[in-house]
Simulated assay, not measured.
Amino acid sequence: MRSQDVTQQLTTPLNAPAYPPGPYRFTDREYFTITYRTDPRPLERLVPEPLRIAEPTVRFEVIRMPDTTGLGDYTESGQLLSVEYQGERGEYVLAMYVDSLPAIASGREISVYPKKLGAPRLAVDSDTLVGTLDYGSLRVATATMGYKHAPLDTDRAREGICCPTFMLKICPDTPASRGSANWSGSGSRTSP
């Protein structure tokens, strides 16, 4: 393979990339989110400067992605913290757990999402919507609510998924990045 062909590749292995090039289209996504208030002290230890805690709240979410071009059918869950950066309110993506290698790799390498392998699930059990997250053999989260008991206002739902998000990209052991961190922000979580 010629060097100019190598530089055109997004990822390795060169003969079977971990994920295909985008753009990616997400069809029929299903979101289940729960926001809870917590002690601000642990959040302050988790949120890196220069971000500041805006409210001591955490949003736990489980998202079904049944039809994503190039990445397939997968589910992810995550924790998002209410923060402020240079006067702008948004969310710091603390962690995401995903059940798909292409979604993990593309999300981490292209979009800076802090993704790890996990087993999130979103399902209906009789008249109850159930979101779970297993990490290895451990159940670490279970969330439930009545299934389609009342519709959510579309503008409010859009506001919840389109607020600014802040993520940290760490590039260790490169001369240009030693001792530094690069911040990434986006207007919405529409990338993998």
Rank of each mutant, 00 (worst) to 15 (best):
P56C: 05
S3W: 09
T165D: 10
P50E: 04
I110Q: 11
Y113F: 15
V93S: 02
A54K: 04
Y85D: 08
S100N: 12
L168W: 01
V140I: 15
P151I: 06
P21K: 14
L71T: 07
S188T: 08
P120T: 05
S77G: 14
S77Y: 01
A176T: 04
S77F: 00
H149G: 15
E30A: 09
K115L: 07
L80N: 12
F166E: 13
K116V: 13
L10K: 12
R59V: 15
L152T: 13
K115I: 03
P164I: 03
T33N: 09
T144C: 03
P50D: 05
Y74H: 15
I161L: 08
P164T: 09
S77E: 13
D155P: 04
Q4L: 08
L80F: 02
P192N: 09
K148T: 05
I34W: 09
V58H: 04
A150G: 12
T69K: 10
E55L: 10
P23S: 03
P20F: 02
V140N: 07
T174K: 10
A103G: 11
S100I: 02
E91H: 05
S188E: 11
T57V: 14
A123L: 07
S191D: 11
V112K: 00
N15D: 13
R139E: 15
I161R: 04
E91F: 00
C171I: 14
P13F: 09
G70F: 04
M65H: 14
D173G: 04
S106H: 09
R45M: 14
E84M: 11
L80K: 09
A150P: 13
M145F: 04
V47H: 06
K169M: 12
R25W: 09
D153F: 00
L133E: 15
E30I: 02
P17I: 06
T38I: 12
T12S: 10
D73T: 15
S100P: 13
S177A: 03
S111Q: 02
L133H: 05
N15I: 09
P120F: 00
E109C: 07
G107M: 06
T33Q: 11
L122D: 12
G185E: 13
L138G: 03
L101V: 09
Y113N: 06
D28M: 06
G78M: 04
R41V: 14
G187F: 01
A141P: 11
T190I: 15
A181E: 12
T12H: 12
Y92G: 06
V62C: 05
Y85I: 10
C163F: 02
D5S: 14
M96R: 07
R37I: 13
K116M: 14
Y113K: 01
A18M: 10
I34E: 15
D125F: 13
A150N: 12
P42Y: 00
I110L: 12
C162N: 11
A16G: 07
P151G: 06
D134L: 01
P21C: 01
E159K: 01
S186F: 01
D173F: 04
E44C: 14
T7K: 10
L101G: 09
A143E: 15
R121E: 15
S111R: 00
P151T: 11
D127C: 07
L81P: 08
V98M: 01
I63F: 00
T132A: 05
T27V: 08
G90N: 10
C163V: 06
T27R: 15
V130E: 07
T154S: 11
L138T: 09
D67I: 06
S77H: 02
V83M: 05
Q86M: 12
T144S: 09
V98F: 00
